[in-house]
């Protein structure tokens, strides 16, 4: 599992690749720290290469969303696979995030 943060104007883009499971949660949380402090930015969680997400992964997305709201930033989840979309639906997270 790798997480890369890129900057594009006002956007901060996190590119997730691999399986975001319990084992990957701690390093991923460390990797997304710059997103948690970003104020008044558009934060894109790019899931094009994300193969799997567990509850721990959902909690990381949730932390990013909470901190973003507190700092006036906006979070968009982009390019989730059909399987991950199903996880978002089964947990009711589909109405919690803006998904593109």
């Amino acid at each position: 599992m790798t997480t890369t943060i890129q900057e594009n104007g006002n956007q901060l883009i996190a590119l997730f690749a691999g399986r975001l499971d319990t084992a990957a949660a701690i390093p991923t949380m460390e990797a997304v720290k710059p997103l948690l402090e970003a104020a008044n930015r558009e934060i894109i969680l790019d899931c094009t290469q994300l193969e799997y997400i567990s509850s721990s992964g959902l909690r990381i997305f949730l932390s990013i969303r909470k901190d973003a709201a507190a700092h006036g930033s906006k979070v968009i989840v982009r390019n989730i696979s059909a399987d991950i979309r199903q996880v978002f639906m089964m947990t009711g997270f589909i109405s919690l995030f803006e998904i593109q």
Binding site: S54, S55, L58, R59, L62, V87, M89, M90, T91, G92, F93, I94, S95, L96
Partner: peptide
């Protein structure tokens, strides 16, 4: 849907959904 998974987090919108 959830019974066969280990998803242990849900949103409060799940019931309404």
């Amino acid at each position: 849907q959830l019974g066969n998974t280990d998803l242990d987090i849900v949103s409060s919108a799940i019931g309404l959904q």
